[in-house]
Design a protein around this nucleic acid. Structure first.
Length: 405
DNA sequence: CGAGATTCATGTGAAGTATACCTTTAGGCTTAA
DNA sequence: AAGCCTAAAGGTATACTTCACATGAATCTCGTA
C-alpha cells in the first residue's frame, strides 16, 4: 500500500473545488443551450408536423465538433416526446451514434443496433442482410406509428459502408404500409454530402441546417453558465473563463474542448490542494491535453510505426549534443530502424514503406519531415522529432514497453 | 567562368501480393409438423 | 420440410512489396574568354 494514498483519497472526498463536476463532463445535458435558440427553433419547426401525426421532412445537421448539434437535437427530441405523450401520439425516436465502433462497422450492425433500440433482438451474426432488413421493416410496420431515426456522426458510418445503405433507408417509406419514417443525419463533415449519390442527397437533405462555430464571447456564456453550477462559489479566478474561451475559440470554437479545458484545469488545481483555479492552470491543462493526445497517438500506433518512432527517438538521443539541431535523413532512420528490428527479432519493411510511414507520422505531428534536395547527395526528407522534451521519457517508456525491450 | 549534363539518395506512383476480416452460401444437423 | 448453425468459399480493405520513373541542386564537363 502506498503511504500517501490516504491523503489523496481524503482530498478527493473533501473536494474543495467542485460542487458538481458532472456538469463539465461531455455527456451532461444542460437545461438551457445558450446561443442556439435559432437552430432549436428551426429544428422544432421542421419536426412539428410529427405532432399532427404527419411525417416530417428528412433533416440534415452540419457543424464542426462541439457546436451543439447533438445537444440541440436531443433537446428538441425530448420536448417532442413529452408533447407527443401528452397528446397520446405514437411517436418513436431512435437515436443512434454511428461513431461507436461496435455499431458502425457494417450495414448489418447498424440495423441490428436499430432493432435493438426498438426493443427486439437479432442474432449477432449469421443472418443475411436483407433478412435483417425485412425484420426491421416488420417491426416498424407492426402498428401505425411515426418513426424518426437520428444518425449521429453519420459521416463515420458512410465512410465504412457504401451510400447505398442511405439510399435504402430513404426508400423505406415505400415499403411501409402503416408507419412512416423520417431520417435525421448529423455530420461533422460539411463536405460529406458532396460525395454521395445525388439521389440520396436530394431525398436525405430535404432540410439542411448548419451550426456555426461558437465565438469566444458565446463560449464564455456557456462556460459561465456551467461554471456556476459545477464549481463552488469563488473557486474560479477572474479571467479564467475568458482565457478558456479564447483558447477554445482559437481552435474552431469547440465548446466541448472549452469545457474539457476548464474541467482539467480544475482537476489539476484540486490535485495540488488549491481551493481555487488560477489562470496558470488553464495553460497547464492545455499542455496536459496536448500531451495526452500525443501519448495516445503513440500508444495506439501499430508496431511498425512504433519501431520507426523508436529509431527516430534513438537517433535524436545519440546526437543530442553534437551536430546541428537533431536533423537526420530517411536513410539514417532506415538503418537504425533495421538494426532495431533485427535486434528485437521483428521483421523489417522496405524503405519504400518506411518512407510512407515517415510521411504519415509527419501528418500526425509526431515529427517534422521536409523533403529537401542535397544536390549531388540526392534527395531526402529532413526529419526532426517534434515531441516536447518533457515527454521524451514517457514516449520512450511506452515504446519500450509495447515493443518488449 | 558559366551553361548544360550528370549524379546521387530517395521521393512518388502504379500495380501486384499476402493477410485478415466480412459476408454469403451450401451442406449437414436439429426440430416441429 | 423448415429452420438453424457452421465451415468453406468468395469479397474487400489494409498493409506491404516490387518495379519504374521523377526530382532537383551540388558537382562535373567542357567550351569559351
Amino acid at each position: 500500500m502506498v503511504i500517501g494514498l490516504d491523503k489523496i483519497f481524503n482530498s478527493a472526498i473533501n473536494n474543495t473545488l467542485f460542487k458538481n463536476k458532472e456538469v463539465l463532463q461531455t455527456n451532461y445535458t444542460p437545461e438551457s443551450i445558450p446561443h442556439r435558440d435559432k437552430q432549436i427553433e428551426q429544428i422544432a419547426g421542421i419536426l412539428a408536423p410529427l405532432l399532427r401525426g404527419e411525417r416530417c421532412s428528412n433533416l440534415f445537421l452540419y457543424g464542426k465538433t462541439g457546436t451543439g448539434k447533438t445537444l440541440s437535437m436531443q433537446y428538441v427530441q425530448n420536448e417532442l416526446l413529452r408533447k407527443a405523450k401528452e397528446m397520446g401520439l405514437e411517436l418513436r425516436i431512435i437515436y443512434l451514434n454511428c461513431k461507436l465502433k461496435k455499431v458502425s462497422d457494417t450495414e448489418y450492425r447498424i440495423l441490428a443496433a436499430l432493432i435493438g433500440k426498438l426493443g427486439k433482438e437479432v442474432a449477432a451474426t449469421g443472418l443475411p442482410t436483407d433478412q435483417v432488413y425485412s425484420k426491421f421493416i416488420e417491426i416498424i410496420d407492426e402498428k401505425k406509428q411515426l418513426v424518426v431515426i437520428i444518425f449521429d456522426e453519420i459521416d463515420q458510418a458512410i465512410k465504412k459502408i457504401s451510400d447505398s445503405f442511405l439510399y435504402n433507408l430513404t426508400r423505406l417509406n415505400s415499403e411501409l404500409s402503416k408507419s412512416q419514417i423520417s431520417i435525421i443525419g448529423i455530420s461533422n463533415d460539411i463536405t460529406f454530402l458532396e460525395d454521395i449519390d445525388p439521389r440520396v442527397r436530394s431525398s436525405l437533405g430535404e432540410e439542411e441546417l448548419v451550426f456555426p462555430p461558437y465565438n469566444a464571447l458565446q463560449l464564455q456564456d456557456i462556460l459561465n453558465e456551467r461554471c456556476a453550477i459545477s464549481f463552488k462559489e469563488n473557486a474560479v479566478d477572474a479571467g479564467v473563463i475568458a482565457k478558456c474561451a479564447a483558447y477554445a475559440a482559437r481552435e474552431h470554437g469547440d465548446a466541448r474542448r472549452a469545457l474539457d479545458l476548464l474541467r482539467i484545469a480544475g482537476e489539476l488545481s484540486e490535485r495540488e490542494g488549491n481551493s481555487n483555479v488560477g489562470l496558470k492552470y488553464i495553460d497547464l491543462a492545455n499542455d496536459k491535453m496536448e500531451k495526452d493526445k500525443i501519448l495516445d497517438i503513440v500508444e495506439t500506433q501499430p508496431k511498425q510505426f512504433q519501431l520507426v518512432l523508436y529509431a527516430i527517438s534513438e537517433l535524436t538521443k545519440s546526437q543530442k549534443n553534437n551536430k546541428e539541431l537533431n536533423k537526420f535523413f530517411t536513410g539514417d532512420v532506415y538503418d537504425v530502424y533495421r538494426d532495431i528490428c533485427i535486434k528485437t527479432k521483428n521483421e523489417y519493411l522496405t524503405q519504400r514503406r518506411i518512407s510512407d510511414i515517415i510521411a504519415e507520422m509527419d501528418m500526425l505531428g509526431l515529427i517534422n519531415a521536409k523533403v529537401i534536395s542535397k544536390g549531388r547527395h540526392g534527395r531526402t526528407r529532413e526529419i526532426k522529432f517534434a515531441i516536447p522534451i518533457g515527454l521524451f521519457d514517457k514516449i520512450d517508456a511506452i515504446l519500450k514497453e509495447s515493443l518488449g525491450l
